[in-house]
Computed example of a mutant assay.
Amino acid sequence: METNFYEVQKFDISREKKSQSSMPTRHYHNGYEVFYMVSGDICYFIEDKAYQVVGGSLLLIDINKIHKLVNSSGETFERITLVFKREFLEDLFPNNKTLDLLSTFTRDCHLLRFNGSEQNFIEKLFNKMVSEFTKQPPGYEFYLKTLMFELLIYIYRHQEAMPPAITEEISVVNKKIFEIVDYLNRYYDQRHSIRDIANRFYISPSYFCKTFRDSTGFTFTEYLNNVRIKEARALLINTVFKVAKIAENVGFDNMTHFGRVFKEITGLSPLKYRQTYKIESP
């Protein structure tokens, strides 16, 4: 099986919507990689393990680890890829052994999942990095290092708070869940119930609920709401649609419910979110 080596830059970050990987073969490189899934679902192989990566999930890939992304459904996904070398951050790290932030890449738990408010926080960090790296205003490299340090501390603390790791490899069972996740990402605007999904995919409702949470880190309702609110956030930012129209477009038939779920996930009301984004836009 072909495996390629790539020399990486000291720092590189990109955010793209894709339907296939730009690196279709197994590969490795001499930099640390942070892969964050904004939306969609793919399968990611690191060495001999396979991970199901859904929206709101983050993968940590250590130096020289062989990896490959597989998108068997062919559906569009959006991802943020950050690659960097240790030398980029050398002058920021404390000169002691009590806080090695890069140790997050060598732990057994490569896959991290974030809830709605955590996703909102971490995506803001990534968006600032992408903007700085793309536009390169005065002092951008210093600011990038500051943002990187904040990101790594956040990841480090998130790992520290996690319960003992359970296996994250894809099994025959959760490949069924992988199909369901793909279905929800495409038809999030329709009405769905646990029983309807269970019947459609020939799985018992109770078994579906347990397996879905084990595989994705979310309950069925949490995951569906996260997908819908992520789409709503994009519409609030990129269109002039009224909030009621956006709620309808992403699958909510009740404005009060939409507003409550939106605030639970983002910490802001839909209108406040739109206003805040416009204020923060460069």
Rank of each mutant, 00 (worst) to 15 (best):
G31P: 01
M162Q: 12
Y187F: 10
S14V: 14
L236N: 10
T104M: 00
E47V: 02
S21C: 06
E90P: 07
Y277C: 08
K210C: 08
F241S: 09
L235P: 05
H67V: 04
L58T: 10
F218H: 15
L271D: 15
F93H: 04
T219Q: 06
D214C: 07
T104C: 00
D182E: 06
K97E: 10
S117N: 14
L236M: 14
P164Q: 08
K49Q: 08
E16G: 12
K175M: 13
L82A: 02
E90D: 05
F88M: 00
A198K: 00
T256P: 13
F262C: 04
R200K: 14
F93A: 10
A161E: 04
V130N: 04
K175A: 13
Q136N: 11
S281H: 09
M255I: 13
F212C: 01
L89W: 08
L152A: 00
F212Y: 14
V250P: 01
N254Y: 07
H29P: 01
D41S: 11
E75Q: 13
Y207K: 14
L89F: 00
P270I: 11
N238S: 03
T167R: 09
P137W: 00
P270K: 01
M162D: 04
L112Y: 08
Q9K: 03
L184I: 09
D100Y: 07
